[in-house]
Amino acid sequence: MHEIEITGRFSETDALGHINNTSYFVYLEEARIKFFQFLGFNMKAKDWNFILASTTCNFINQGYFNQIFSIKTCVSKIGTKSFQLEHEIVCAQTKQIIASASAIVVYYNYEEQKSEQIPELLKSQLAGHMKSECS
């Protein structure tokens, strides 16, 4: 499991005073990027081989300005050309779950505009973070 922390910013709140639902997708993107960096991937566009195929987020509790969120990321499935990540957003102070999410990421060749098989080295790196749940 990989874990990062993000603090809810005032600009991410809405008229109801809680973190707006769209902000969670930005948090999840940050968690994915940090996960890929942790695996050793270069963040230069010419070297990038991932494309997001699908993402979902289930909102369980409200988050607020200045709250610290711990975002856990793990791998739940590895296919031939894609893999699935699971995320859990938890209040770092209270340990209350705020949201759970998943993302399907495709290994993608941007030059040829098509998906490709996941290289064995990446498969083994992903397998090292395989869990049925992130908690």
Rank of each mutant, 00 (worst) to 15 (best):
E3Q: 14
I4T: 04
T7M: 14
R9E: 13
R9C: 06
F10C: 04
S11T: 06
T13M: 02
T13S: 05
D14A: 07
A15C: 04
L16S: 06
G17R: 01
G17Q: 03
H18Q: 00
N20C: 07
N20H: 09
N20R: 05
N21W: 00
T22P: 00
S23F: 05
Y27V: 00
E29V: 00
E30Y: 12
E30D: 13
A31G: 04
A31L: 05
A31N: 01
A31P: 03
R32T: 07
K34Y: 06
K34I: 01
F38K: 14
L39T: 07
L39G: 07
N42E: 15
N42T: 12
A45C: 07
K46M: 06
K46C: 02
K46S: 12
D47R: 02
D47E: 13
N49K: 13
F50C: 05
F50I: 09
L52E: 01
A53G: 13
A53V: 08
S54C: 02
S54G: 08
T55K: 00
T55L: 01
C57A: 08
N58K: 10
N58R: 10
N58I: 04
F59K: 03
F59A: 03
N61F: 03
N61K: 14
Q62S: 14
Q62L: 08
Y64K: 05
F65W: 11
N66W: 10
N66R: 15
Q67C: 02
S70W: 00
S76Q: 11
K77I: 04
K77T: 10
G79A: 09
T80N: 15
T80V: 10
K81V: 11
S82K: 15
S82R: 13
L85G: 06
L85F: 03
L85P: 06
H87E: 05
E88N: 03
C91Q: 13
C91T: 12
A92T: 04
Q93A: 12
T94K: 05
T94N: 05
I97H: 04
A99E: 06
A103P: 08
I104A: 01
I104C: 03
V106Y: 08
Y108G: 09
N109A: 09
N109G: 03
N109D: 15
Y110C: 02
K114T: 06
S115H: 13
S115T: 12
P119K: 09
E120R: 09
L122S: 03
L122E: 03
S124H: 10
A127D: 14
A127Y: 09
G128A: 13
H129K: 12
H129W: 12
M130S: 11
K131E: 15
K131P: 02
E133V: 10
E133T: 12
